[in-house]
Amino acid sequence: MRCLALWLLALLSLIRVAAASETAGLGSIDALALFRWLDTPDPPLLLDVRGRKAYLSGSVPGALDAGKDPAGFLPDSRGGDVVLILAEGVEPEPWRERLADFGYRVHILAGGMGAWRAAGFTVEKPAEGFVQPGTVPFLIPRGICELNEPAEVYD
């Protein structure tokens, strides 16, 4: 009996959590739910649409800078789920329409970067970890399996 009550309690709290993320707004997702979603084998595509400066000053790890103008963004046609990181006060509708045209299901990070930061999740400065293809010459090693000898310089 005690056991059953505990199960019910656990179930109720689960439902409450689910409801909480729903009330964040239609099609929106809270920071914790996004964090969990990103931690699955099928994460959504993350688009930061706050503009270059805001993007470079720190974004959700893995987010792409899609620019500020929905008409100036061309997604691939693979569709799927996309989560938008909007600047405060920006209307999501133009983005929603643009992406829906390419077959995307659009979700919005409730509270934007502010909510992500407040939740204490990692903020990445894309400029730091940014990979610039082909810009730096680098050594390709033969590997530990070949006694650490650098094998060839490649650029």
Binding site: G62, V131, P133, I140, P141, N148
Partner: peptide, 24 residues
């Protein structure tokens, strides 16, 4: 993995659970 003459091994692999971003 890359091998830097001074810094030694540099890990440039794709990390788990975190997408890498390229711009061209």
């Amino acid at each position: 993995w890359e091998h830097h003459p001074v810094q030694g091994w540099l890990d440039r692999t794709l990390k788990p659970g975190r997408a890498a971003v390229l711009e061209l």
